[in-house]
């Protein structure tokens, strides 16, 4: 049975959006199925894989663990909003140039999580990066090139800031 829908107003990738969702629908479903933003992926739907990571009011969250109705008034950044004006974000470029992806399914979540980290901490240690990304499962890479990509992006972003 379908349930009565609620109107939700939020900001997604710096644009105001309004959508109707059922109370039981997750933010991930709203992004993917209602707003057509399929960059965030569903790997587990129980908060263990991080493939659906989005930034919600400045914090990385698993979109599968947030209800759509909870997004009311929130600012959300998804993988689709990371690149600006036709140019890849340094984090995206670092993943691309470091061969830090294979199948690419976990990559949007990893990139969003990485951006959230580097927005807060410009020079994280390897241990800190490993701790931060422990929420994002990747089965292809063994994480080696992912960690190196994060280090590379951090370095580049520090240079730009300096």
């Amino acid at each position: 049975m379908t349930h009565r829908k609620t109107l939700v107003r939020a900001t997604v990738n710096q644009e105001s959006v309004e959508f109707l969702c059922e109370p039981r629908q997750s933010l991930l479903e709203c992004l993917r199925d209602i707003l057509g933003l399929t960059g965030a992926k569903e790997g587990c739907n129980d908060g263990n894989c991080g493939a659906c990571t989005v930034i919600l009011d400045g914090r990385p969250v698993n979109a599968c663990l947030v209800l759509g109705v909870e997004a009311e008034g929130c600012e959300i950044e998804t993988i689709e909003g990371i690149a600006r004006a036709g140019a890849l974000h340094p984090v995206q470029r670092a993943y691309l140039e470091s061969a830090a992806l294979q199948c690419g399914f976990c990559t949007p979540g990893l990139i969003v999580a990485t951006k959230a980290l580097l927005d807060q901490e410009p020079n994280p240690s390897e241990e800190r990066i490993r701790m931060w990304l422990a929420n994002n499962l990747c089965r292809c890479t063994g994480y080696d090139k992912v960690i190196r990509a994060v280090q590379r992006a951090a370095e580049e972003m520090r240079e730009v800031r300096a």
Binding site: L37, G39, K41, E80, Q92, G104, F105, P108
Partner: peptide, 21 residues
Amino acid sequence: TRPPRHDATDKVTGRAHYGAD
């Protein structure tokens, strides 16, 4: 040599279409 992957941009921007997309 180590050129960039042809499909990498689609995969770092979330544009690549997987089964459920």
